[in-house]
C-alpha cells in the first residue's frame, strides 16, 4: 500500500459516525447504479436473441416491423424453413454427433485420467504435457492433414468423420485427473488391498463418486460439439449428411436475406440448447466457470 493511503492516528475515531452515514448513502447509490450496469449488460446480451425469436414469428409482409411483438404472430417462416432444408434430420444428426462425442470423450478421458492419477511411470509427465499442450495447436494448422486423412478413409461427407478427431479432449483429461487425484487415497488403497483390479477400482470405486465432475464435463462437451462449425464446414457436402450449423450456413448462402425463415432456422438450431439451459441453468453456468477457472 502507498503511504498516502495510511491516515494519521486518531483520524479514524474522530469522524467515524459521519463517515459511516456517508458510506451507507454511497452504498445505496452504488447499488442502484450496479443494477443499472448489469441491467444494461443483460439487455445487450439478450436483445439479439429475443429479436431472432420475434423476427422468426413475423409474417413475410410484416418482416420489417420494429414492434416488440409481431402484430400477427405466425409460424409461416418455420413451415418455409422445414420445406427448404431437412431441419429435422440435421437436428437429429447434430444430436447423434454431440451425444457420441460426449460419451466417447468422457470414456477416454476417464481412462487416461485414471492412469495419470494412479501410477507414476516413465514418461508420464511428458505424455501429460503433450496432452495439455494440444491447445497450442490451432485447428487451422492441422486441418489439411486431417482433411486428407478423412478423404483417404473415404469418409468425406459422413457423420463418422465428424466424430473421429474428437475421440479425446485435453480439458476433460486434465479436469478428471485433478478430480481423481483429490479422491481420498485411503479408499483407493483399501480397495487395492482387497485385491480389486485397477479396472474394478476405476468403475466400482471411482466412477460412482465422480458424478459431479462427469456431469459438468458432459454439459461442456455436448454444448461445444453442438455448436461446432469449422470441421463440419470442411467435410459436409449434402444437407442430409450434415449438422444443423451447416444447415444454417447453406440456407444463408442459398436464400440470402430471407430474414424470417433464416431466423426460424437459427431459432430451431438454438432451442435445444436454450431449453436445456432453462432446466439446468445453475449446473451449466457452473460447469463453464469451472473450465474457465480451473
Amino acid at each position: 500500500m502507498t503511504p498516502d493511503a495510511i491516515p494519521a492516528p486518531g483520524w479514524r475515531l474522530a469522524i467515524r459516525p459521519q463517515a459511516m452515514a456517508q458510506r451507507r448513502g454511497r452504498r445505496l447509490g452504488r447499488g442502484v447504479l450496479g443494477h443499472g450496469v448489469l441491467l444494461a449488460l443483460s439487455f445487450v446480451c439478450l436483445f439479439p436473441i429475443y429479436w431472432m425469436v420475434v423476427t422468426s414469428l413475423r409474417p413475410a409482409n410484416a418482416i420489417f416491423e420494429t414492434t416488440l411483438w409481431p402484430s400477427a404472430a405466425s409460424l409461416a417462416n418455420y413451415r418455409y424453413t422445414l420445406n427448404a432444408i431437412p431441419v429435422a434430420q440435421m437436428l437429429g444428426n447434430t444430436l447423434v454427433v454431440a451425444l457420441l462425442v460426449t460419451a466417447i470423450q468422457l470414456l477416454t478421458a476417464l481412462l487416461a485420467a485414471f492412469a495419470f492419477a494412479r501410477w507414476r511411470f516413465t514418461g508420464d509427465r511428458l505424455v501429460f504435457a503433450l496432452v495439455a499442450l494440444t491447445w497450442l495447436v490451432p485447428f487451422q494448422v492441422v486441418m489439411i492433414p486431417n482433411f486428407l486423412l478423412v478423404a483417404q478413409l473415404g469418409l468425406l461427407d459422413s457423420l463418422t468423420a465428424l466424430v473421429l478427431p474428437h475421440f479425446a479432449s485435453a480439458l476433460a483429461v486434465m479436469l478428471l485427473t485433478q478430480a481423481i487425484r483429490a479422491f481420498p487415497q485411503e479408499v483407493i488403497e483399501a480397495a487395492h488391498m482387497d485385491g480389486a483390479s485397477s479396472w474394478r477400482l476405476l468403475w466400482q470405486v471411482l466412477v460412482p463418486n465422480l458424478g459431479g465432475s462427469l456431469a459438468s464435463l458432459a454439459i461442456l462437451i455436448f454444448i461445444s460439439t453442438w455448436n461446432e462449425y469449422f470441421w463440419p464446414l470442411l467435410l459436409s457436402r449434402t444437407p442430409e449428411n450434415s449438422v444443423i450449423q451447416i444447415g444454417i450456413q447453406m440456407f444463408m448462402s442459398a436464400e440470402g436475406n430471407q430474414w424470417g425463415p433464416l431466423m426460424a432456422a437459427s431459432t430451431m438450431a438454438s432451442v435445444p440448447i436454450l431449453a436445456f439451459y432453462l432446466v439446468l441453468q445453475r449446473q451449466v453456468v457452473q460447469s463453464f466457470m469451472q473450465s474457465g477457472l480451473r
Binding site: 443483460s42 439478450l46 439479439p48 436454450l274
Partner: peptide
C-alpha cells in the same frame, strides 16, 4: 442472463 450468448452457436 448475461451467460446466454455463450451458449449460442457462432453461426447462429
Amino acid at each position: 442472463l448475461i451467460f446466454v450468448p455463450m451458449l449460442i452457436a457462432p453461426v447462429v
